[in-house]
Amino acid sequence: MNQIQIGILAIQGDIEENLTATNLALDELEIKGRVIPVKYVNEIAGIDGLILPGGESTVIGTLAKLSGATQLIKDRVSNGMPLMGTCAGMIMLAKRAYDRVVGEIRQQMFNVLDITVERNAFGRQNDSFEAELDIPLIGSESFKGVFIRSPIVTEIKNGVDVIATINNKIVAIKQGNVIGTSFHPELANDTRFHKYFTQLVIDYTK
C-alpha cells in the first residue's frame, strides 16, 4: 500500500492544530502517511482525504470559491474521498445554513451534507463552552467538546447518521464518507476523532 496523504484545507483557521492532531493520529495508529496543508488547486488531486478546519466559514468559503477549489473537492468527495469539517468546516459542507442575526446565508459552498445548520446557535463568544460528550462511535470514554461560537444541526435528511448530541441538539453527523462536527476535535487534546477519520481514509485507499 502506498502511504496515505491527508490534506488540511489551508486557507484560514486553525490549520496547524489539525495538522498536529492528524499527525498524532497517524503515529498512534502506526500508519505511514503524510499530512499536508492544501491551499492551491493543483494539490487536491494527490490527497486521499481532506479536513476543513475551524475558522470563519464566510472567509474560507469565499476564498475557496475564488480559487476554484470547491468544485474539485466536490468531485473527489462524490467519488468516495473522505472529508471532515469541524465547526466552520461543517457549515461549508451543509446544503443549507442560516443565522439568527442575518437569516439565510447567501452562498452555498460545498453542498455535500443533507443537513441544515444554524450558525452561532449557542450565541456569541460569552456563550462558548467546553462540555463532556458521549460519542459511542469513537469509544466509551467521554470526549471533550470545545464549542466556540458553534453551529448546530437543526435538520437532517435520510442517510445522515447522528454521531453526537448535547441537550438533544445534534452536534456531530456522518453521511457516507463525510463527517461534520459543531465542536473542535483538534483542540480537545484527544486524537480519537482524527483517528476515526484516518481509518476512513485508509479504508478508502484500500
Binding site: 492544530e17 466552520a88 462558548s128 463552552f129
Partner: peptide, 19 residues
C-alpha cells in the same frame, strides 16, 4: 458546561489564524 476556560478563550483566538 464550562465557559470562559483558557481553552475556550485561546481557542477563539486560534480560529482567526491566517485571517
Amino acid at each position: 458546561v464550562r465557559k470562559g476556560t483558557t481553552l475556550v478563550k485561546r481557542g477563539f483566538a486560534h480560529m482567526h489564524k491566517h485571517g
